[in-house]
């Protein structure tokens, strides 16, 4: 099967004041269409940098990101990002935030009424249609993140990039949003890459879990297939042997083989 997204021998280093620090080294990964892939690793291992490279927000030092065999090196709406801190524009309402994206990305292919329907459909998808006229400051953190997901989906991306999307949320809200993301993924079949540091979240949501070694010069240590049938239900899974084995495998990787050592730097 031909790869949908291919990360081809990617290196990334940052030069600062004459000192070059190597962040990522020789990243090789292929992702199929419709796949849900999580990238997990200790903080500082460069997983957010990797997401930014795929998004095109940062340029690779060597290697290439190939989407459908074409190199991508600048950001674009076909790789929509859901940011950790939602990044909604505070002076626009929920509706206007999504409209900004929709009218820019789909302004040519859809007329006004179609765009309106499309915005409302995406708001319905994340169950936020009721808050369409609220400003970001007036809704909760979980709701903001839902709107952020709706904005990303409304761009009709080929790949959805989630940068620790639930990191700033409390555990219960986080569970709700994980269910929402699973539901959306099953309905739309969107190819998704998610950065996370939560083992349970990675196992619950992903088809594959990419485990990063510690930096500097971090690379992909192991890739774990999660052979759990969908739809997945968190309560049933909490005692499922496969789930627990996957969880154990990731934990062992993170805390035995690549234990995070706090450096003096």
């Amino acid at each position: 099967m031909k790869a949908y997204l291919k990360l081809d021998h990617i290196d990334k280093s940052f030069a600062r004041g004459g000192q070059v620090s190597e962040v990522l080294k020789d990243i090789r990964l292929t992702i199929d269409k419709g796949e849900f892939v999580s990238i997990i690793g200790h903080s500082g291992c460069g997983k957010s940098t990797l997401l930014n490279l795929i998004a095109g927000l940062t340029k690779v030092s060597a290697g290439a990101v190939l989407l459908e065999d074409k190199e991508v090196d600048s950001p674009g709406p076909e790789r929509a990002v859901v940011f950790q801190n939602h990044s909604l524009l505070p002076w626009l309402t929920v509706y206007e935030n999504i409209n900004l994206a929709v009218s820019k990305v789909l302004g040519r292919s859809k007329n006004r009424a179609e765009r309106h329907d499309w915005i409302m459909r995406n708001l319905d998808l994340v169950q936020m249609a009721h808050a369409r006229d609220k400003r970001p400051a007036e809704i909760s953190g979980g709701m903001k993140q839902r709107v952020g997901i709706a904005r990303a989906l409304a761009m009709e991306p080929k790949i959805l990039l989630l940068d620790e999307p639930f990191g700033a949320l409390d555990a219960l809200t986080r569970a709700h949003l994980q269910d929402a993301v699973m539901d959306i993924h099953s309905r739309l079949g969107s190819t998704t890459i998610m950065i996370t540091h939560d083992v349970d979240e990675a196992v619950l949501l992903s088809d594959r879990i990419v485990m990063m070694t510690n930096g500097p010069a971090a690379t992909i240590g192991e890739v774990l297939h999660v052979p759990l049938a969908r739809p997945r239900r968190r309560i049933e899974l909490s005692s499922d042997r496969t789930f627990l084995r996957c969880r154990e495998a990731v934990l062992k990787f993170l805390y035995e083989r690549h234990r995070f050592v706090e450096t003096a730097a």
């Binding site: 998004a55 095109g56 927000l57 600048s74 950001p75 674009g76 709406p77 790789r79 929509a80 990002v81 940011f83 801190n85 990044s87 524009l89 900004l100 994206a101 820019k104 990305v105 761009m155």
Partner: peptide, 18 residues
């Protein structure tokens, strides 16, 4: 201006005027 807003505009490919 927060870097995130700039990133949003880059992903949407807003031009200078927009």
């Amino acid at each position: 201006i927060p870097e995130d807003y700039r990133n949003v505009s880059r992903i949407l490919r807003l031009n200078q005027l927009e």
